[in-house]
Design a protein around this nucleic acid. Structure first.
Lengths: 204, 204
DNA sequence: TAAAAAAGTTGAAGTCATTCATCTTTATAG
DNA sequence: CTATAAAGATGAATGACTTCAACTTTTTTA
């Protein structure tokens, strides 16, 4: 498996992704041209396209890394959520928010979101959708945990309610990345104001 | 004011927008080339750009028309909302959904949404954002009406709650336009399942 | 009405993502 | 080791949005 060809391939792919993350963060996704990435990775433009189908593909590889970390952080919260319903929900939401800008800039998030909406049927669009679905499921799982614990009314259906919570946090995150000047703290405060009253309403 | 030049300008702008709406609906936004619109409107490519800054600009003019109608429909509901909280909220939401595909196709909606996310600082992005804000305000207004009527708990803050409802219906609409095969009925059912339990919780 | 100014139109050129026929490099067979 | 086949790299060509310097048309001035 480790012939010369294999090694060279792996190395080229690594160099291209490395160049992309660097350039995207430095120059912005839009401003970074494929030719620039190719130059930095010391390959030709055509070669970039042998490894990634489109420019958006390269971005999506980064998004996937980021969201995997976010899901990890969520698992930690799920393992031992805070006692009260509001604190528990907000702990998960803030865990998401706090791990969202490790690899991606706001501009990169915007582009990824735009890609996912504009071309939902492409591999990229589907991939983004799946990541979203996993986050929504995790939110539903938290509601279930709280329900099993007896902290949430038994007559609440966790599926639709988890989806609603996720839709709200997702839309608020979208507003956050749309405004380069909005600090994370403002996002947290707004979502706090939306989520706490709701949490009290569903308490057992 | 009605010199020859003025008349010709108005006529050209009308022809371009007309050509755009026709072509976008017939061929799809992406597939319709500026050159095609120019040909149909009997002007040159450059002239199209004298009237609209970008291709997205032309689309946004259509979106604005559509949303104005949606807001009109919303006003009708606000004037005399159904008696129960759940019916009232869903009446407004469904009024929005039912008036959303008059001028725009799902593909056109996707593109407009993508534009608004990707370039929030541009005139187009801001324009889309403002339309969204007006819809969210209308939802908050409905909650206030229901509260004044005594149908909703007095201790609920209508602002954050209205925003949450809007975020959810907006995100669900986004899912709807992302799936060309999803019928309106499915969207309605899902949002119904999310909204009714919530409505009962906030009842006075 | 004729000349000058202002406004607007035009389409070829520029830019950048993406494709593809050709060429080079690596692996395999005899 | 040579020859053949397979895999992969290459960059010029393509296509679509957008720009801009030159050209027309309309309006104003005298």
């Amino acid at each position: 498996m480790a012939g010369l060809r294999e090694k060279q391939k792996a190395d080229r792919e690594r160099r291209i992704l490395q160049a992309a993350v660097t350039k995207f963060r430095a120059d912005g996704y839009r401003a970074a041209r494929i030719e620039d990435l190719a130059d930095m990775a010391e390959v030709s433009v055509g070669t970039v396209y042998n490894y990634y189908q489109t420019k958006g593909d390269i971005l999506m590889a980064t998004v996937a890394m980021e969201v995997e970390e976010v899901l990890e952080a969520g698992l930690t919260i799920l393992a031992d959520p805070p006692q009260t319903v509001d604190d528990a929900l907000l702990a998960l939401i803030f865990a998401y928010y706090d791990h969202s800008l490790e690899y991606l800039t706001k501009e990169m998030w915007r582009t990824a979101m735009a890609l996912a909406i504009e071309a939902p049927g492409t591999p990229n669009g589907r991939r983004y959708f799946e990541l979203d679905q996993r986050l929504a499921s995790q939110m539903t799982d938290l509601v279930k945990v709280l329900q099993n614990r007896g902290a949430v009314r038994q007559d609440l259906d966790p599926g639709p309610f988890g989806a609603l919570l996720f839709n709200n946090l997702n839309q608020m995150f979208q507003e956050f990345v749309k405004d380069d000047d909005m600090p994370l703290e403002v996002l947290r405060q707004r979502v706090d104001a939306q989520t706490r009253p709701l949490a009290r309403l569903i308490g057992a």
